[in-house]
Design a protein around this nucleic acid. Structure first.
Length: 827
RNA sequence: GCGAGAGUGGCGGAAUUGGCAGACGCGCUGGAUUUAGGAUCCAGUGAGGAAACUCCUGGGGGUUCGACUCCCCCCUCUCGCACCA
């Protein structure tokens, strides 16, 4: 028998699949569609076994769907813009474009080695002008719709790199690139108005039953909707401070106010004086970086502002404080403080000896007891004027109503979600297509002039400053509106903009005239299955959802959610840590595939554990997967080749053990049970148990021929072996294709129909019925299927273990579950 | 603190309309084959016990003829959010 020579088999079949265009989408055939999308990678050039998991999962499912007769769209591309390329340029003097292209080529080679089948004719890269032209077009569309605007924002600023940093680029309050402490800086920046869709983005999550609950929860937290009232607190010397609260039922207990250091009220106060202490406190707080402010559990400190306000419900005079526990980013940057019913206010009030007034009574409590901590729950109002005696929820409604009548406040819904800051002071990204005209101010570049090309022959400054700032042939331009002198925008777009729409481009990847075809995306989207890492749970997925809704409202497409079903795969770890080059615990693909072949790498990756959970990579596990493929190889050839008939052996004589199948009908039942199991397991992302059921089938086949070598010519065995090969093919495609041809397949196994199970074959003659006495297992009986209660009970009583346990006792009740169990309950 | 998820042999993990706990793989033990190693094959492998048998799904309680599965309380771990008013 030939050895399993995966080195020869694997490249051979990959060439063949390419030649027959197995993964080339046939757009003209209109069968059921299946758009199976993997999150496209950033071309870092680094690819190890941990990166393969999602692609292998998707590939297995896509191959099964192909065999089930679906038109499968299975594209791949590259998230080509981003910082690492620019850093490589600065550090190693390689141009970002060159670095990126080389990495794409290297990664594509490795993808191909895995045998993951993609429709490479649809490949896109976000850094190609043919792609980013359309990213720029989106920008203009959003700008035209009023969803892109320029505004001032406080941002993380690295003084050394001279750029704004995203929050995720700030590590422990310092720039991830150069370790310089990050400061806050107000800058004019471009934003997308994602907040206009806050409510719809929240509601839409309820329409996504096939998304992981975890991801939806994270998005809900991020959107952060809360209902409350905005209340005007009049100031003693004129004017007022507005604050937002969700607990207006506690307003009668508001004994002071707190504003954030950035609150405009303080500008007025400090202009007219203010204590030295206040001045110093505000200065210090305002200079804190955003990152510093986000550190949790800081001691609450504050200073009296010198200003008094009036509680609009009680008329009480209350002091206004400045403190570090109020954030300017949320609400109005000012809060009413109710120390009796808010733990933060309670701690602060105790520290600075501020008044406390109890206005909510917990159920079963009497007033006047000394509080050890704030009571934040619901209860009955006390000492609250006309609202005294109401329950919290009713009181909130009544108080809000009264505030609206009297003009003191109004009901509002607030979100934590901020608008999406999309400008970056970086070179390697999509240029923002606007110019600044001396006369007309901000002018968008007309669509006919797109793309605004990113100049490639540029010099990189070690400071990290964008080379665009000194490129006059890029900078200097004319105004599209008045023809006068104008300067181009030098900021580029956040790479999340590039990746927010790429899945639309795959349908018309090379069309120079349109970003996407309305008709095609309406037919092919939403994406049926989107596979990727949990790290994109919020940003990428939320931005994509936003872009789709915006495009829908602009009339470019007619669906509301881009991804019907989302699957987030777990990480692959090694020695307890995420595999990464810097930790030195990577297993190289090339090495692994060189030693064991791609099919082993794939099979082990699928078998390692539940796909959504993190898993620990072990060499022993790889060997186990390889052993299984070796065994299948031998088994299939032995049971199917001519030598199967030529080498009859004496029956081993040993009686078949209980777990073994007893005849062709039993073998068929196992085969068809495996078809059911593998089919549903692949559809439900339980690849690990799909693999184990194939191992079981292989074990059963092995025992079957061992017990009766003459059975090798049986039709049931032939069916078993053929089915094993076909069911294995999505997971270990190369070896399955080779075996399929060797056992008589005349065309690719992937062109064969996926096996259907035969309900008749699933029916077994006998089944195992367990017998319990008082819930304790006493016997296992093999009974004919459909045995009656009487027959089962009689057989059970006849068993000697059961009889021994029943002797001397009276059976009070006998529970019978057909085909499963008999349980005797005795006195 | 809030929210979500998880806790099962030496290890990864199976089993959910409540009905055989530990599938499958790794590891380990013994045997066959082999000069040897490797590979392969066979048998065994939750714990205790010579055995009969008993015990076992983080801990405690409950519902039930019967609980890994349902309910209540507690512990631990992972992830997310976090002074959001």
């Amino acid at each position: 028998m030939d050895a399993y020579r995966f080195h020869e088999i694997e490249p051979k079949w990959r060439r063949h699949w390419d030649e027959i265009g197995l993964f080339r989408l046939k757009l003209d055939e209109k069968r059921g569609k299946f758009y199976c999308l993997d999150m496209f990678p950033y071309p870092s050039g680094e690819l190890h076994v941990g990166h393969g998991r999602n692609y292998i999962l998707g590939d297995s499912l896509a191959r099964m769907k192909l065999m089930q007769g679906f038109d499968v769209l299975r594209p791949m591309g590259w998230d080509g813009f981003g910082l690492p390329a620019e850093n490589a340029a600065i550090e190693r003097h390689i141009h970002p474009a060159e670095w990126t292209r080389a990495n794409i080529a290297a990664m594509k080679r490795q993808f191909e080695q895995w045998g993951t089948g993609f429709d490479w004719g649809r490949e896109v890269a976000t850094c190609d002008p043919g792609y980013y032209k359309w990213t720029q077009w989106f920008f203009l569309e959003l700008y035209g719709a009023g969803l892109a605007y320029r505004g001032e924002a406080s941002a993380n600023w690295c003084p050394s790199c001279r750029t704004v940093l995203a929050n995720e680029q700030v590590v422990a309050g310092a720039c991830e690139r150069c370790d310089t402490p990050v400061t806050q800086r107000k800058l004019e920046q471009w934003f997308f108005k994602i907040t206009a869709y806050a409510q719809e983005l929240l509601d839409g999550l309820d329409e996504l039953p096939h998304w992981p609950e975890r991801v939806k929860t994270m998005q809900r937290n991020w959107i952060g909707r809360s209902e409350g009232v905005d209340i005007e607190f009049p100031l003693e010397n004129g004017g007022s401070v507005r604050c937002f609260t969700t607990r207006h039922d506690t307003i009668f207990g508001a004994t002071y106010m707190v504003v954030a250091a950035e609150h405009p009220l303080l500008d007025d106060v400090l202009r007219n004086g203010g204590s030295a202490e206040l001045r110093e406190f505000v200065r210090k707080e305002r200079s804190q970086s955003i990152a510093r402010r986000w550190e949790p559990a800081r001691d609450k400190v504050g200073v009296f502002s010198g200003v008094y306000a009036r509680n609009p419900m009680t008329g009480r005079r209350i002091p206004v404080w400045v403190a570090n526990y109020v954030v300017v980013e949320y609400g109005t940057g000012a809060v009413m403080a109710v120390p009796a019913h808010d733990q933060r206010d309670f701690e602060f009030a105790r520290k600075y000896s501020l008044d406390l007034k109890e206005v909510i009574l917990a159920p079963g409590k009497t007033p006047g007891q000394t509080l050890a901590e704030a009571y934040e729950g619901e209860g009955t109002l006390v000492d609250s004027g006309e609202f005294t005696g109401l329950a919290s929820d009713l009181a909130r409604d009544r108080i809000a109503g009264r505030m609206e009548e009297t003009g003191v406040g109004r009901r509002v819904v607030r979100f934590k979600l901020r608008d999406w800051l999309v400008s970056r002071q970086r070179y390697w990204g999509t240029p923002i297509p606007v110019v600044y005209c001396e006369r007309c101010s901000v002018v968008p570049v007309p669509e006919s002039s797109l793309p605004v090309i990113l100049p490639e022959d540029v010099e990189f400054d070690p400071s990290g400053r964008s080379p665009l700032l000194t490129r006059h042939d890029f900078l200097d331009t004319t105004c599209p509106r008045c023809g006068g002198k104008a300067r181009r925008e030098t900021d580029t777009l956040d790479t999340f903009v590039d990746s927010a729409w790429y899945y639309l481009r795959y349908l018309t990847p090379h069309d120079p005239n349109i970003a996407f075809s309305r008709e095609m995306v309406n037919r092919w989207l939403p994406v049926d299955l989107y596979i990727g890492g949990i790290e994109h749970a919020i940003l990428h997925l939320m931005y994509s959802r936003f872009i789709i809704k915006a495009l829908r409202d602009m009339g470019h497409l007619s669906f509301s959610e881009p991804f019907e079903r989302l699957f987030t795969q777990g990480m692959i770890c090694m020695n307890g840590a995420k595999m990464s080059k810097s930790k030195g615990n990577v297993v190289s693909n090339e090495e692994l595939i060189g030693r064991y072949g791609a099919d082993t790498a794939r099979l082990y990756t699928l078998f390692i554990g539940p796909p959504e959970k993190d898993a620990e990579w072990t060499e022993k596990g790889v060997e186990g997967a390889h052993r299984f493929l070796q065994r299948v190889w031998r088994q299939v050839l032995e049971c199917s080749g001519p030598e199967a008939a030529r080498e009859p052996q004496e029956p081993s004589g040993g009686a078949a053990v209980g777990s073994r199948v007893r005849g062709p009908a039993d073998l068929r039942a196992k085969v068809h049970e495996t078809i059911v199991k593998v089919t549903s397991d692949l559809e439900n992302f339980r690849h690990n148990t799909a693999v184990s059921s194939l191992m079981e089938l292989s074990n059963v086949i092995g025992a079957y021929v061992r017990d009766d070598p003459s059975s090798r010519s049986e039709p049931a065995l032939r069916e078993a072996v053929r089915t094993l090969v076909v069911l294995l093919s999505p997971m270990a495609p190369h070896v399955s294709e080779e075996l399929w041809r060797r056992i008589g397949g005349t065309r690719s196994v992937f062109l064969e129909p996926w096996p259907a199970w035969d309900p008749a074959a699933l029916k077994r003659d006998t089944q195992v019925v367990v017998v319990q006495v008082n819930g304790k297992l006493r016997a296992r009986l093999t009974l004919p299927v459909g045995a009656s209660r009487a027959a089962a009970e009689a057989a059970a009583r006849a068993d000697k273990h059961v009889a021994a346990n029943l002797s001397g006792r009276t059976v009070r009740q006998a529970i019978h579950v057909e085909g499963k169990l008999v349980n005797f309950v005795t006195d």
